[in-house]
Design a protein around this nucleic acid. Structure first.
Lengths: 233, 233
DNA sequence: CGTCATGTTGAACCGGCTCAATTGTCGTGG
DNA sequence: CCACGACAATTGAGCCGGTTCAACATGACG
């Protein structure tokens, strides 16, 4: 582990989560560099040549697809400790655009050397395949949400998912801050911003949540999860 | 290429599409076996231990997710020459259930040896990663459809997709046969069977298609594609 | 020929959308 | 510090696309 990695807030999360088998003396070969993004800044865009995968070190990102008519559809939110850019291997260029939702730090890893390394280290190879495959898992869960769920179920699914991932990152499970706008939530869930608002108001009115704009607190998380069982995988 | 592969209808499609770099003398090590499935029979089920990936040799399959309440959501259709089971690497067990829609032949490949082989052959490694990554691409395209499209756009997207894939398999581009039921189409598109029927009727009434139950013919494919541009990727 | 699943069509309903207006939030500059 | 403007969030009223529910047609298969 080199100097930059020692300081990385991901130093614990990165290896077990992503690249368990990389022996320290070699890992510096992989790291391409860090970037600091401002809110709204893109890390990569759809169509960019794919050479790097990225870890979110701090902040939050979204990834979005572009429709033929040019409008965007948010297809994922990414918290610290998670990877973005793993949609690249499919075609050799990114198929999504990754944008920072707030000031965000990322760490980039060169894909070529990573592949090469993985062929020498079976554990890395398996982890890499797993990571790429998990990309599809996420998308499939998303399909389940968009398929035939009501607005409240969709919103509940997102909140429970964010809660769980925030917890995995060491944050509170019941007190989550939404770094994305209502419009972005709506795009992700296949709803309008108005409906997102109304659903959150209903959750508040029925004492399931406290909602203060972008701050959400579960009043009884287990009860909430029980009320929306179809959303848990 | 061993005897079974010589007779395989995929013998041309398999290598270029999937495993370009496997040198013939070794490929027999990979092939695990063939299976013949009847309509409705499952090749694997959600939760089964993941050891094999499969190619569809003939017939048609669907893969489906299971909701917490037990109901299924179709998440993909698979034509001859395409792979199924690549959702396995993520967690070491299948996350979907693959079912034959008609009499279907499959060819299975052991994942472990494939991984091992791929570490010696960079081209195979890259292809394997690409295949796994394409799994996510498919799911993302599906998200785009389920996100915010009208019923007709969804149906058009499916028909154009099937047309394109049928053409890739050497079949007619404008004359396609739907091996799946209206219910399965509806599940895949996030619609009811009734709506699927009505949309097809509308396409027929507006002279875009000839529809005879499970047989669909585009009367003017380019015009159809132009009428639904948002559905083409 | 009867049975059962699949497909089709119609009528009424409703969840979420559209459109429009209001309020809240935050950054900027006076 | 406040005023201002731009944008995000919220709320209401009315509408509409797709669902629900029900009836009927078709077709596969014993």
């Amino acid at each position: 582990m080199n100097a930059a990695c020692c300081a990385c807030p991901l130093r614990h999360a990165c290896s077990p989560g992503g690249l368990a088998g990389v022996d320290p003396p070699r890992s510096h070969l992989l790291m391409f560099g860090r970037r600091c993004l401002l809110a709204g800044e893109a890390l990569y865009r759809k169509g960019d040549a794919f050479h790097l995968v990225h870890a979110v070190c701090s902040g939050t990102m979204k990834s979005s697809l572009t429709r033929a008519d040019g409008r965007a559809q948010v297809c994922g939110f990414h918290l610290p400790g998670e990877f973005v850019g793993l949609d690249g291997p499919a075609e050799g260029h990114y198929q999504t655009t990754a944008t920072a939702l707030e000031a965000t730090q990322t760490c980039s890893v060169a894909y070529g050397p990573l592949l090469e390394l993985s062929s020498r280290l079976p554990l890395v190879q398996q982890d890499l395949n797993r990571l790429i495959s998990r990309e599809a898992s996420r998308a499939r869960r998303h399909i389940l949400v968009l398929g035939r769920m009501t607005a409240s179920e969709r919103m509940a699914a997102l909140l429970l998912d964010l809660s769980q991932r925030a917890a995995a990152g060491g944050h509170s499970r019941s007190d989550i801050s939404l770094r994305m706008s209502r419009r972005e939530i709506g795009s992700y869930l296949g709803l309008t911003t108005e409906t997102v608002c109304r659903v959150l108001r209903d959750f508040r009115d029925t004492k399931l949540l406290e909602v203060d704009t972008r701050r959400v607190r579960f009043l009884d998380l287990p009860a909430f999860a029980r009320a929306y069982p179809a959303t848990v995988n």
